[in-house]
Design a protein around this nucleic acid. Structure first.
Lengths: 109, 109
DNA sequence: AAGATTGTTAGTCATATGGCTAAGTAATGT
DNA sequence: ACATTACTTAGCCATATGACTAACAATCTT
């Protein structure tokens, strides 16, 4: 499997798509409503939605002629965890450096 | 300003670049060491580094013939915050739904 | 000084990405 | 039935992205 994070970060690297996510965390919406604030052609917008759906960030169901889109929050959490992890490792390193500095302080005051 | 998150997420959407970040959170390293584990040509790898540097995730200094690269953790934190924010909004919505359900329960038991 | 290391620059190539228009389909409103 | 709404599909275009080789430059090492 080509890492999940690939498609996630790829999906989030576009402002239109991030805006859609920002909208969807407040609740599901039909395609037309999601499209409205964006000044791009509908087909172009639909392909952004497809990217989001392919990345697993979003799902949709069609009822009648309306397709309703909703967010799938899990991938957000996965990415958040990854970032947090990196930060913790990095901070741990800082802590280690601080500890080392302190140790040097004690050894050679 | 074209959102900071654009270049950040774009930078993180590539596995090679994420691997570099994962390595760099444990401490700075010269280009050659960063390149070693990756089975791609050096020039190709250098362009990945440039993407990371352009996105502000990484900086580097050259001393003699060795260029040492180190991470800039702030962008990681910014992205983590953004994701956390989205999650909180989403969870807030869940809470509101739960509250609504509870309210309905009480109204019509 | 000669050779090995460690990048760097330049140029090519294939594919992916983000945008468009035009035309089509399936529901729904009148 | 007909028009309108709400997507869908198909196809085109320009630019960006990720990979390569070849050749160059600047340090060490010996």
């Amino acid at each position: 499997m080509t890492n999940n994070l690939d498609t996630f970060f790829g999906a989030m690297s576009d402002p239109t798509r991030r805006a859609v996510i920002e909208r969807l965390v407040t609740g599901p919406a039909p395609v037309s409503e999601l499209h409205a604030p964006h000044d791009i052609a509908l087909p172009t917008f639909l392909r952004h939605l497809k990217v989001l759906e392919d990345s697993g960030l979003v799902r949709s169901e069609k009822k009648g002629r309306v397709r309703t889109v909703h967010i799938e929050a899990a991938p957000l959490a996965v990415a958040e965890d990854w970032l947090q992890n990196q930060r913790l490792i990095w901070e741990g390193r800082i802590d280690r450096l601080a500890a080392l500095a302190e140790q040097i302080e004690r050894t050679a005051p």
